[in-house]
Every structure is written in C-alpha cells, then in structure tokens.
Amino acid sequence: MNVAQIHRVYFIGIGGIGMSALARYFAFIDKTVAGYDKTESPLTQELAASGMDIHYKDSVDLVAEVYKNDSEHTLVVYTPAVPSNHKEYQFFLQNGFTIKKRSEVLGLITKDSFCLAVAGTHGKTTTSSILAHLLKETGVKMTAFLGGISEDFNSNFLLEGTEYSVVEADEFDRSFMQLTPNVACVTSMDADHLDIYGDAQELEKTFKDFTERLKPGGTLFVRNGLPLKGLTYGIEDDSDYCIRNIKIEHGTYIFDLETPDLKLEGVEFNKPGRHNLLNGLVAFAMAMQAGPPPHRLAQALSTFKGVQRRFSYQIKN
C-alpha cells in the first residue's frame, strides 16, 4: 500500500475506537474520508462534524459515487466485527478495491517510524495514553493511536510528528501480529478471547510470537512474573524498573522510581490503584527509549489526567 497513491479512504465500521483514530489520521494527512457504522455515537458525530460523510444503513447506494468509481485510488478499511455478508464489504471485495483490516493499515503506517507498542489483555489503553502524554509533554515528535479518549488531549488520536508512533497492540483476532515495533511491553496475559484462541496456552504462545516481531535490537518490557523474556517492571521486587517506598498524600501516590541506571525520588502519580502504578511505570520505561530526560518524564507523569470514563474525577476535594 502506497499512502501517496491513495486519495480517499472508506471505513466499514468507522465508529469503533480504533477505526475512528485511523479515520482522523487519514483526514489529518488530507485524504477524503467517509464510512459506515451500524449506530450513531458521539464518536461518529464528531467525525461527521469534521467533514466526514457517514451513514448508518448497510447500503451500497449510500456510498458516494466518488468512492465506488475509483478502485485505484480508494482504500477500504474494515473491522473484523463486520460480517462477511455485509453488502458494502461485498461490493468493494467484488470490484477489485484494496481492502485491509484496521490492524494491517496500522502496521503499514507505523512500520517506518520508531514504533512503541503496548500489548496485554488488560491495561493497554491506559498505558498507551500515559505513554503518549509523556512523549507529548517532553516534545517527542510522534503519532498516537489510542483505544480510548485521553483526557489530556481529548482524543483517541494525536499527531505531533511522524518520527515516533504509539499504538495499542491488540491481541483480538491476532491483530498485533501486523506490527513490527522497536519497543514493546506486555502488561498481562490473562485468559481472554478464548473464542479465538481456544485455550490459555495458545493465547500465551501468540503473545510470545508477538514479542518475536520486535525489530532487530528492539526492547521488550514485561511485567514481572509473566513467562516472557525481557526487561521486567514491578513494585517492591527485583524488577529492572521498580517502584519503591510508596506513600499516599491527598490522593496522590509519591514514590521512588528505580531503573537499571538511576533512581528518581519523590515521583508523583494521580491515578488510583496498584495496576495504574504499573501502567505508569512501564509507560515511563518505554518513553525513556525515545530519549527524553528522565526527570522531565517524571514531571510529565505527575500531570497525566486519565482516560475518559476510567477513574475520571467528577469532584475531587
């Protein structure tokens, strides 16, 4: 796929959180974007308000002629949730259009950047949102595709540059096997999506396969205790990256953060829960690989607001 040859992009399932981030990306780089979704939502309303032509009935007649008549310059992106008998999907399939899953397109977009990929059955969205926030605050030129709406920039997509990219490495439908990251983490490998994998052993094997997709010289971070080889992270243990001496003051965690090379004291983080401390720690460790000064990353960690609908403060005294 040569992005330069694409003039327009049509999304089947444009309202999904990952799909809408891709739609924003293509609009940002001046491609014409349209799409279908089953139901209207705040996300699709935002996309439509930005100028995208969106409809909610599976009908080829509702697809603008400019998309249907130019298979050479039109890319069709679909979500795995779309059934194979979907009328619009079948039209594009039978008429020679380039049709790709969201994960394939994400892999193609990010392969030439320094890619930081967050994998795990839990914690992907929070960790990737923290990572994007840290890089943005420290001036790293990056693009972020998130699986939730970050409260820090009120979007699931951020484009500050193209040298670096932040992505969620989704295990659903083995989507993350399309990525070739420079830096990756695995936050968890709980038995999930067993309708796809069959059993926990196959899920675990696929996560291991994903870690082997790292580019040569790449760096893998693994939550301490998971059966994978990489730099470990944890709390009050023997991890390579470790949080110690935790205190809580006025709802804020204050702790020491140790890396293989340095120790930062009095680091602050405002999201509740041990799991969020771990998410913040590995996001910090990954962000270090992009080169910002560690003390600046620690300052940025203290200002992370969160992901909408996940631990959002309505009132905080």
Rank of each mutant, 00 (worst) to 15 (best):
Asp190Ser: 11
Thr74His: 05
Ser188Leu: 11
Leu262Asn: 04
Ile248Gln: 15
Glu88Val: 06
Thr259Lys: 02
Asp58Arg: 02
Gln45Tyr: 10
Ile243Ser: 05
Gly96Ala: 01
Gln178Glu: 13
His55Phe: 09
Ile149Gln: 10
Thr32Leu: 15
Glu137Gly: 12
Leu134Val: 08
Gly230Ala: 10
Lys141Phe: 15
Leu134Asn: 09
Val76Ile: 06
Leu226Gln: 10
Asp170Ser: 12
Gly198Asn: 03
Gly16Arg: 05
Leu226Asp: 13
Gly147Tyr: 10
Arg102His: 09
Lys87Trp: 03
Leu194Pro: 08
Leu228Gln: 07
Glu88Lys: 01
Ala21Lys: 08
Glu137Trp: 08
Phe210Gly: 03
Lys305Tyr: 10
Pro216Thr: 02
Arg244Phe: 12
Asn224Trp: 05
Ser129Pro: 14
Pro260Val: 06
Phe304Thr: 02
Gly51Trp: 14
Phe269Asn: 07
His86Gln: 08
Lys31Glu: 07
Thr206Trp: 05
Asn279Glu: 03
Leu264Trp: 02
Pro42Thr: 08
Leu108Arg: 12
Ile243Phe: 04
Lys208Ser: 11
Tyr89Phe: 12
Ile109Thr: 07
Pro216Ser: 03
Met19Leu: 09
Phe172His: 10
Arg24Tyr: 10
Ile149Thr: 14
Val222Glu: 04
Leu228Phe: 13
Ala285Val: 01
Leu131Asp: 08
Met1His: 12
Gly96Gln: 01
Thr125Glu: 08
Ala298Arg: 00
Glu46Arg: 15
Asp173Tyr: 09
Met52His: 15
Ala298Phe: 01
Gly16Trp: 05
Thr219Ile: 06
Gln308Ile: 14
Leu108Glu: 15
Gly123Cys: 13
Leu301Cys: 02
Ser155Arg: 12
Asp30Asn: 15
Gly280Gln: 01
Gly123Asn: 10
Ala184Glu: 06
Glu249Pro: 06
Ile248Phe: 11
Gly107Asn: 09
His250Gly: 07
Asn276Cys: 13
Ile149Asp: 08
Thr74Pro: 08
Ser188Arg: 11
Thr32Met: 14
Ala191Asn: 10
Gly218Phe: 02
Asp173Thr: 07
Ser20Gln: 03
Ser239Gly: 07
His250Glu: 09
Asn245Tyr: 14
Lys68Phe: 03
Phe210Gln: 01
Phe92Ile: 00
Ser113Gln: 07
Asn279Thr: 03
